[in-house]
Simulated assay, not measured.
Amino acid sequence: MKYLVFLLLFLTTTLVTFGQQNSIEKQIDSLILTTTTKPFNGVILISQKGQTNYFKTFGYSDIAKKVPLQPNDQFVVGSISKQFTAVLVLREFDKGNVDLFAPIRNYLPELTQSWADTVTVHHLLTHTHGITQLDKPTSFPVGTQYSYSQIGYDLLAKIIESTSGKSFATLSKNLFEECGMKNTFHPDVKKYTNLVKGYTENENGIIEFETETFQNYVAAGSFLSTAEDLTIWNEKFYSGKLLKSRTLKMVKTKQNGAVRNHPIFGVTEYGYGITIDTKEDILQLGQTGFAPGFVSMNFYFPKTKTSVIVLENVAYETDNLKKTFYFHTAILNIIRNEILNYR
């Protein structure tokens, strides 16, 4: 299937404006409409202080059938999932059911490796545990290095299943319902109806339907959501409606040793479940996400209460994530520059 299938037309457009067309709209439109070889296929939503400044869809939810994307279409959000999991863990901490610095064997006695006596919930949250497989030793002494991990967040899901007596799917369902996120689901909760198809560009430049979309651990990278639901999440999460204030402060604190050479952003610092960027004296919180066939981004700027959400269901050039996330980072830079210009 050739790129011509992605004719750069507004197949579906949902735009809420307040006054004249603003600078952000012009810049994003120009970015999307002047890129012709590998066009954006997804949803972009920019909101500030509860008002939607930009909300448009481009392309298809089903490329073969040419079904236009809709605003409430659901995407697999990749590592954005980790902040959902972190909040569920920290709510158990707020209840006194989880000690962040106790050995995880306290919660998962069935683990056979000796690292269960030294790895803590804190280590799992900050990717400083070194676990690569449940039946093997850690790849480095616990707490001494950083290594971005999927399995660590799966262990966190198992821990809160143990402490709460409920399945991780049920816990997440209850959380999303509490937030009013009607279109966000654990994939095992079979109530989603608008999941788009994900696509990956192969080595020959052909866009193919992705069959491995759900290969990630759900707690680390396989929740489903929509752009509108993620704006709801940002408002609830960062305003302190989900966690105690001291706990939310830990989430937004750069954790010792939790520093990664990010494939897109370079040196990146982490809190609990999110990245924390203070470059240019702008506080930026959030995460990118990648799942086979899906490329996502959700960042929040607390000072201006701005959400920047980009969800795409075509993954280009996956051997070079800077290119895969081209549109996402370009849109993020537009918003950062606007904040710099008007602060």
Rank of each mutant, 00 (worst) to 15 (best):
F327M: 09
F209Y: 13
T306F: 06
L332C: 00
A116S: 14
N72W: 08
V77I: 15
K323Q: 13
L7R: 13
S139P: 00
A220C: 05
V77N: 01
T306D: 09
I309W: 01
L285G: 05
L7W: 00
K173S: 04
Y316S: 11
I309D: 04
G240N: 09
V76L: 10
L224H: 03
K56M: 05
N261I: 12
T112E: 13
K254D: 00
L108G: 08
K279W: 01
D281V: 07
K303A: 15
T126R: 12
E210W: 04
G257D: 07
Y148R: 12
K279Q: 09
F237L: 15
M1T: 10
P292D: 10
S172D: 06
V267E: 14
V142C: 02
Q21S: 13
F223W: 06
A291K: 05
L311V: 07
V308S: 11
T213F: 03
T118Q: 14
G240L: 13
L125T: 04
L45C: 01
S23Y: 02
S61M: 09
F55N: 15
V295S: 11
V189T: 13
N298F: 04
E201A: 08
K49N: 14
P39H: 12
K65R: 14
P103W: 06
S149C: 04
K249P: 01
P137R: 12
V314S: 03
